[in-house]
């Protein structure tokens, strides 16, 4: 939505900016430029006001987000009670898993202030990655690595405090 502002900056264009930002995300890093260009091109931008939802708990919103500027809060509704989980700022990439398959959101994400983000839909991602099938294993490796790293970190940092949650752990064993 912010295209007017960005494009007035002169020769730089949204496509170039998207390309630079995607390269910095773990998910897309390491993809060859040829395929990265297609993803950067397929992205769209949205501007959200404070209080607007990026996605809602329980829905499959079919897209991944990169927060360009602003701040968004992750919330979870538990039996009618809103719980704040954490906040994400500029530079966060959320939703790599959504691109790979249907998932229902376990959280809601809501802008806390004026937020600009880049969106890539699952449909576009799927069609585009089919054009570069040799890259699929690389993406799967990155996702698997991330899940493993996450649990590794969780165990190292929080296992001692988590009390009764230990028997439920093991997402990396999936």
């Amino acid at each position: 939505m912010s295209s007017l502002e960005e494009s007035s900056l002169g020769p730089s264009c949204e496509f170039q900016e998207n390309l630079n930002l995607l390269r910095q995300t773990h998910f897309f890093s390491g993809l060859p430029l040829e395929s990265l260009k297609v993803f950067a091109y397929l992205c769209v931008r949205e501007r959200l006001h404070a209080g607007e939802f990026l996605f809602r708990q329980g829905e499959d919103d079919h897209q991944a987000y990169y927060i360009v500027s602003g701040k968004a809060r992750l919330e979870r509704n538990e039996n009618g009670h809103e719980r704040e989980i954490r906040e994400f700022g500029a530079g966060t990439f959320i939703g790599g898993l959504t691109l790979l398959g249907e998932t229902r959101r376990l959280y809601s994400l809501r802008a806390v202030e004026e937020t600009v983000c880049i969106l890539l839909s699952r449909e576009k991602f799927t069609k585009a990655i089919q054009q570069f099938p040799e890259q699929i294993p690389r993406i799967i490796r990155i996702v698997v690595g991330s899940i493993n790293d996450w649990e590794d970190r969780f165990l190292a940092e929080l296992a001692a405090d988590c009390g009764g949650c230990l028997p439920r752990l093991g997402v990396s064993l999936l």
Binding site: S8, G10, S12, C13, E14, F15, Y41
Partner: peptide, 15 residues
């Protein structure tokens, strides 16, 4: 249409 076709920019002077 710069709002849709994002592969190049349209400078302010040109606008």
């Amino acid at each position: 249409t710069p709002g849709i076709h994002k592969m190049v920019g349209l400078g302010e002077d040109l606008q």
